[in-house]
Computed example of a mutant assay.
Amino acid sequence: MGRESWTSQRIALRRHPDGRVSPTDFAVEDQPIPQPGDGEFLVRILAVSVDPMLRIFIDPAPMAGAMPPMPVGSTVPGAAVGEIVETRHSDFAIGDIVEGRFGWQHFALSNGAGVNRVDARLGAPENALAIGGLPGFTAYAGLEVADLKPGQTILVSGAAGAVGSAVGALVKARGIRAVGIAGGEEKRRYLLDNGYDAVADRLAPDFKEQLAQALPQGANVYFDNVGGPMLADILPVMAPGGLILVCGLMAGYQGDEQTGRDNLPALLRAIMFKGLRIQAFSQYGKDALRPAFDDEVAELVGSGKVKPQLHIEQGLERLPHALAGLFERSVPGKVVVRVAEPSDAVPTKIFEESE
């Protein structure tokens, strides 16, 4: 299968979202298939990651104006996994399965910067966008900062999401007790089956009581993926000297968070009387951790100790709908859009079913 049979399209930003993101903020456009130059290779995208952080980058004033807005008409960025179909790069061959920030499109050129080969032990290539990719590496980097010891307890908000799921899987393998926060019975069951020792249902009327029961000794680390007013409910169950680790602020990404209360006084009191620490972190600049992460996660998935949970949609045009859906109706695990099937050039053993 070659160029003559391929479709080449991209998803472009039609306008910056006004409040809640809508599929109409994006446009599907045809584009030519590029030719690799010296030191480059052409990737045919197989699957694209759908991540809530993208909402920040497409905002008209990202981070309250601290970042320049993405130009209208640009290809939407994002992590993806694909196969190399043409190459003029000495270190990458046709048929290699790779993961990188290739964007919302069918084809991408790369010089290899920021590109990772997909370990065959991960099974389906989409797993390189879940625990084997950016969400898993984010969880891994955060746990390096947390420096938890066996016998300690971590509390995770948004625990059924892509990063939260990865946190639970990684800490279970390390002998750390994990308590998750999620909404609804389906997510509670999912978390209990995937590394969490207890789950508090944020939608339940007795949510605070569930937290207290699950954390009789308090949480040594709160891994916060959500932000928002929930923080005030977490402070009473933090252990003295505990760490609040800020990974994400999904509750505020759409710019429409209405808390109705000021959490700062309670936060400052907890910091003073419990000796709490608050630290934000990012996986960016942590490339030195990547080899150890790749090996640990590949072993966990390959051995069956971790079974990645994927929610897969089909077709490039579904990407805008999938992004809007993250904020409207969350699902357990990692959301991925499959945009193409592998060609005959790709080793079939990499595509064994793992869902």
Rank of each mutant, 00 (worst) to 15 (best):
F327V: 12
I350M: 13
A324I: 12
T75I: 03
M272H: 12
S157M: 03
E144H: 12
P150Y: 15
Y284I: 06
D294Q: 12
V98E: 03
G175S: 12
A47S: 10
A141N: 04
L235E: 13
M230T: 00
D59C: 14
N194F: 13
Q31V: 12
F207D: 00
I278V: 02
Q254V: 02
R55H: 08
Q283D: 04
M70R: 08
A27K: 05
Y196P: 00
N116F: 15
L170R: 02
D59T: 02
G260T: 05
V43G: 10
R269E: 11
A27R: 05
I33A: 09
S343V: 07
A173F: 15
S282Y: 07
A79N: 00
V28K: 15
V81T: 09
N220E: 10
P125L: 04
E86S: 13
F293G: 05
P347T: 02
S354L: 04
G39K: 05
R290S: 13
Q254S: 06
Q279R: 06
G142R: 06
K187C: 08
A159T: 04
R88D: 00
R202A: 00
G252S: 15
G255S: 14
M272L: 14
T24Q: 10
V339R: 03
E257V: 00
F327N: 12
Q254F: 01
G275L: 01
A166K: 02
L264R: 15
I176V: 14
I11V: 13
V48Y: 00
V163G: 09
A173W: 09
A169G: 15
H16I: 01
V156M: 07
V335M: 14
E328F: 15
A298H: 10
R44S: 06
E40Y: 15
P77Y: 08
V301P: 08
V76F: 08
G103V: 01
Q314T: 14
G218A: 07
I350F: 11
S110L: 12
A198V: 01
I176Q: 14
G65D: 04
K286L: 01
G39N: 11
L122S: 10
N194I: 05
Q213I: 11
D30P: 03
Q283L: 07
P308D: 14
N225I: 05
G184F: 05
D30L: 08
I234F: 03
V226H: 03
Q258W: 11
G228Y: 00
A141M: 05
S303Y: 07
T75M: 02
G161I: 03
L264E: 12
G73Q: 05
E186V: 06
I154H: 01
Y253V: 01
A27S: 14
A200Y: 00
L249I: 11
L192F: 07
I11L: 10
Q254Y: 00
L231S: 05
P71I: 07
L170P: 10
G242Y: 01
F327Y: 14
F293A: 03
G248H: 04
G133V: 03
P34F: 12
P347F: 10
R3H: 13
R329A: 06
P77S: 14
Q9G: 12
S282A: 11
L316R: 03
N263W: 08
P236K: 01
E209Y: 01
V331N: 06
G100A: 11
T24S: 08
G123W: 07
